[in-house]
Every structure is written in C-alpha cells, then in structure tokens.
Simulated assay, not measured.
Amino acid sequence: MESTTRKKRILITGAAGFLGSHLCDRFIAEGYHVIAMDNLITGDLRNIEHLFPKPEFEFYHHDVTKFIHIPGELDYILHFASPASPIDYLKIPIQTLKVGAMGTHNCLGLAKAKKARILVASTSEVYGDPLVHPQTEEYWGNVNPVGPRGVYDEAKRYLESITMAYHTYHGVETRIIRIFNTYGPRMRLNDGRALPAFIGQALRGEDLTVFGDGSQTRSFCYVSDLVDGIYRLLLSDYAYPVNIGNPSEISLKDFAEEVIKLTGSNQKIVYKPLPADDPKQRKPDITKAKTILGWEPKVDRAEGLKKTYDYFKALPESEWHKQPKEFTSK
C-alpha cells in the first residue's frame, strides 16, 4: 500500500537560488516531497530556511558536478543549478561551464538510474544576439562561443544537446525549458541584471545605469508565472524545448524610467558603453507554451514590479549596499 500512497519525490538542484526556492515552495504546496540541493556558491539558505521545519523537505549541501547519490525512489528532477547572471558567470566561468556540462550529465545519469522524469533549465541566451524576432524554439541562435557570455550560452546549449541525447538514446523522459528574463522576490540586488540593478540604485539614491543607448529590449516575466509554466511543462508529454516568458517587450531606457516613476525618486539615467555580445532584442514567441501547456503569463509588469520593489524595500538597508560575492574559479 505504501507505494501507492507515498508522496511523489522531486529533486530540485539550485534550490537555494531565486528560481529554485520558488520551485521548492510550489512543489511542497502541490503535495510533493522535495529534496533540495545546492552548493551555495550563488544560492542563499535564507531563501529556503522557512521550509526546513517541514517533514516533506530535505536539503543536501552538494555540488552537482560531483556524483549525486539520492537514496530511495525518485519521480522527478528539476535541474536548475547554474549561475544565471552576468556578474556571476563572468567571475566563475569554469564553474558555469562545469555545472552545465558535468552537472547536467550527473543529473541525467541519476534520472536514468531512478527512471525519473527530468526537466532541465535552459535559457533565452541560447539564441545569443538574435537575428530572428521574436524568438521561436526553431531558431538556432547567433552565439559567440569565445565571447565573455559564451561560457553561459554554450553551457546551456550543451545542456540541451546532452538532454536530447539521453532522451533519444536512453529513453529518459526529458523536458527542456528556455527561460526568458524573470524577476520577483528573492532576486539578489547585486546580481548584475537590469531589474534588480535599477531598483538597487534607486533605493541607494544613485542614478540608474543604462548600457548603450538603452534601445535594447527585454521581456520580463514575473516569477509566479514562470513557476506555473515549469510545473505545466514537467507534467506535460512534450520533450522538445519550450519558451516560457512574457512577450511584453520594453526598451531598457523605458524600463529605467518605469523604475524611477515607481520608486518616486529623482534619479537620472546615466549611459555607459554596451558590454560585448549584449543582446539587442529579447522577446519570446510563446505559441508552443499556449498550445501545448495552456500557459500564458497573468501578472503584468506594473503589478509584478510593485511586488518586487516592495520586497527589496523591506530588506535591511545593509542589503541594499551589499557587494557581489567574490568567487574563485577552480
């Protein structure tokens, strides 16, 4: 009787990160037993500390680039371990490549051994600086493999390739999500991405830094919408990549102005040179997500931005001034 009534068990790698922690919350709310794993290089235990008292939650402090051992049965794996912001992967390029390659290989091997279904987190960065707009899943991308962003872009492209190889050769049940810009509570103010950077500067009373002329676009998806898309994709029957993101596109200059208006600050926008290989446009085509998953975003940017700002504003002021972590590349 035990096998029919036991909770489904899911391993979530990168569980102490921004997205990973929200996924832990969602799957516990859905009645799963969550096994969280993180090496805490970029993750923060404070994101999941509220879950530690729960009997249906356990945490492994472990690096997925090393062999992964999980005792007992395992039904699902969400592989979200990876640095995801430029400030991280430019400082730890070797770990970024290793978690995309060796970490994904280890997770796929575990999925094969446990007969578990695995969903891997890819990114819109696989499209590079796109020549097709909006980006569909069939577009192969325009990526510079030896540029500064190549360590992240190519790690995720390899992640997709090896995942499909395990699906076609070993018959592993695999799902691939391509995540577009996502935001919400538990992001790090100092992670180098536009939204937390703008809010952090506004809170500190600094002018907002826009790179280039600010005409480059992004499409921001609120975290609860993204998590719902991940949940639906995991439980779907579709093995090929699916874009999950909000197609509401905005230039970074206009976005900075929105943040200034929201925060009621009198900061100005200052312009700095555009970093190498910075994408000029980013907008998902979500036709597949709509038709296959019945998914589309529900939270508009004004609502999501206010929730995110309120979260950051409530943090101790010392957090507003916190510097990025220092890393060593091994």
Rank of each mutant, 00 (worst) to 15 (best):
Q95E: 09
V172T: 02
G43F: 02
R6N: 08
E125N: 14
P297N: 10
P134C: 07
D300E: 12
Q216I: 11
Y183P: 02
L19C: 13
V151Y: 01
I48K: 07
H50Q: 14
K307S: 10
E258F: 03
L90K: 11
R188T: 05
H22E: 11
G20D: 09
W320D: 12
N243L: 00
E138N: 09
A113H: 13
E160R: 13
P284C: 03
V223R: 09
K54C: 08
L45D: 12
E160V: 01
E58G: 09
T123M: 06
E257I: 07
Y166P: 02
M187T: 01
Q95V: 05
T123F: 02
K7N: 15
Y222C: 05
L51A: 08
H61A: 06
Y169K: 07
Y32S: 06
E319K: 14
G294I: 01
T13V: 00
Y309T: 06
V151K: 06
I244T: 05
N144T: 06
E303R: 12
V227D: 04
R46N: 13
T5C: 12
L235T: 06
H105Q: 13
N246D: 14
M1P: 08
I179D: 10
G72M: 04
R218G: 01
P241Q: 02
E319G: 04
K325F: 01
G128D: 00
E317N: 10
M1Q: 13
A155R: 03
I179H: 07
Y76G: 11
K115Y: 06
F27Y: 15
P53L: 12
T4H: 08
A314G: 10
E257L: 14
S3T: 10
H69W: 10
G17F: 03
G192C: 07
K7A: 15
A202Y: 09
D129V: 04
F211N: 11
E58W: 03
G212L: 01
G205E: 13
L74G: 09
K268V: 05
D285Q: 03
L51W: 06
S224L: 15
P297E: 12
